Amino acid sequence: MDKQLAGRTIFITGSGGVLGSTYVRRMLAAGARVVASDLPGHRAETLKAAHEGQANFRFYDLDVGDEDQVTGIFARIMADGWEPNVVLNNAAITGELLMGAGKPFPDFANTSVSDWERTLRTNLTGAFMIARQMDRDIVGKYPATLINVASMYALNGPHHAIYEGMPFKSFSAYSTTKAGIHGLTLWLAGYWAGRGATVNTIAPGAVFNGHSEEFQRRVGQLIMAGRMAQPDEIADAMLFLCSPQAGYMTGQLVNVDGGFSGW
């Protein structure tokens, strides 16, 4: 088996979701040491159970919106003898996640400031705090890579009609933070260029996660490939961005969306 990530130690925030858990699985298979993190709860426990006993896997509880937790995370990891040289800013609150907390999905006029600010705190401020801690603890000490995870809705507006009659909608705060993520990438890419670090953004498209046939049909009509992505198809691109073969890439936005952004 090709071990394209051998020698890489990869730290992933928000590792328990459909994409995060796929990244963990695929990166371990590709020979990486994987440091996963997420909020305590069912997703974290499921991920830990799936990789229990693997020598190349570690897990840390982490709320990326908590400054004290983020400030100490790399020190904790390095104290355990691991030195992350690739970091994935993957943690994010989505509208579906808010619904999972027992809330109805709000329309724009009824979006609360608390939900808006909570989303910004996790998706954008959390990404900033992880990058800031990289600057303090990692960047310049050895070559490092940061991958910021955006979305097909980072630089493209959603087609609101596809959500009509669906239990979920496109969430304004999510799109806003994912656009901001790439702004952070561009700023950091130049700032870290002389210190041996690269920074890129990946923008996944619509990923299948138990969606109804009707929703798949609606969104598939907007995508050149005619369908939603499987999680492993996003992971294919992520593995490349984390590998030494992407060493000459920095400041880039990589769309993995089946052609959604091309129309």
Rank of each mutant, 00 (worst) to 15 (best):
Y163I: 10
L239Q: 10
D80L: 00
I202Q: 06
W192M: 00
T22P: 09
G72Y: 00
M238F: 14
A91C: 08
G190Q: 08
A32W: 01
V24F: 04
I202R: 00
F11N: 05
D107V: 12
A75E: 13
D80S: 07
A91N: 03
Q230N: 09
G20P: 14
D66S: 06
R76K: 13
T122I: 15
I77W: 02
A101M: 12
Y248V: 13
F108E: 13
G157Q: 06
V207N: 08
G95T: 03
G81V: 00
M152W: 08
P143F: 06
T9M: 03
V149Y: 04
G205T: 09
D135M: 08
G180T: 09
F11Y: 10
P231S: 13
R76C: 00
R132L: 01
A173S: 14
I223R: 14
Y191M: 06
F215R: 11
L188K: 00
Q133T: 03
M166A: 15
S243H: 07
L241K: 12
A197F: 05
E45L: 06
N90I: 01
L98D: 11
G17M: 09
H211N: 15
L98A: 07
A197P: 07
T177W: 07
T122H: 05
H211P: 04
G226V: 05
R26I: 04
L241Y: 12
V64W: 00
G53H: 04
G157I: 02
A193N: 05
I130F: 02
G7Y: 07
G41T: 03
Y248L: 14
L62H: 11
A92G: 04
R136M: 05
W263M: 15
S212T: 14
A29S: 15
I223V: 15
A144R: 01
M134A: 02
G183I: 11
A189P: 03
L186S: 13
D135F: 05
D80G: 11
S21P: 13
I138Q: 00
S261R: 05
V35T: 07
I147C: 06
G194R: 05
A30R: 05
D107H: 07
V254N: 02
E214Y: 07
M166K: 14
K141F: 10
P244K: 04
Y163G: 06
L39I: 01
P106Y: 03
V199N: 06
R217S: 15
A75G: 12
L253W: 03
A36D: 01
S243D: 14
D236W: 03
D80K: 02
F240H: 12
F168L: 09
K141D: 12
A235Y: 12
D80P: 05
L39P: 08
P84T: 00
P244Q: 02
W82F: 08
M99E: 10
F240I: 08
A30W: 08
D257V: 01
I234Y: 09
R58F: 10
A29Q: 15
P106S: 10
Q216E: 15
